[in-house]
Nucleic acid binder design. Sequence first.
DNA 1: ATGTCGAAGTTTCTTCGA
Length: 260
Amino acid sequence: MKIATYNVNGIKARYETVATWLREDAPDVAVLQEIKSIDEAFPRELVEDTGYDLHTHGQKGFNGVALLSKTPLEDVTRGLPDDDEDEQARYIEGTVIGETGAVRICGLYLPNGNPAPGPKYDYKLAWMARLEARAKALLAEETPFLMTGDFNVIPDDRDATRPEAWANDALALPQTRAAFRRIVNLGLTEAFRARTQGAGHYSFWDYQAGAWNRNDGIRIDHFLLSPAVADRMRDCTIQTEMRGREKPSDHVPVWLDLDL
DNA sequence: ATGTCGAAGTTTCTTCGA
């Protein structure tokens, strides 16, 4: 089973790019972030031809996440627990049923947090604490799960072309990295790093300043796997070539292949 | 220090967020 995460940076602006990608690369499950659309305005024709099961959690203008699946998802829920006062659409869960088991898919768009320090950074850290609590709860009930999406976290200096340029940024501050490590250290596996070591692997290149042409990137789109899911991992790869296509998102898809 | 993009309102430009 192939699961892909992809920050599309606007589903309406990215329609052709995403439709072609779904048709040609055909993930079993696609976890999308930054759809920047209310649910009613999500282009249904994207999935009508392909038959994908679509679940959105959108809002006007910003943020917004979605799950697409070749087979129907079960028990889809929107928002993190204790999210009642959170107006930002950043989290969605659904269960995919494979031939030999089920996996809870947690799709997330973690707050950027800049400028730091400040209220936006406080919101980011609070959101990460709530994500950690959710991971703890899923581990406690022994639900096989994965968390994936745009974490807006550069885990380590090797995950940036120019780490010094990000040293004071909300994506790389020590508190951000510590919060990310706290979640991983609950017993999760960071899928990409379980397969690939070393620098030079990125999932985002800014539109500005020719970042793509200079390969000035960062790795901020991740998969965290619970133990049972980690045991089933075949591979985790970054689809770098997508950044060079016509009308690209500033992020590229990251893929997880599971024996499921 | 920065050469961009997408969405929405203030709507054929400006502002915001990233």
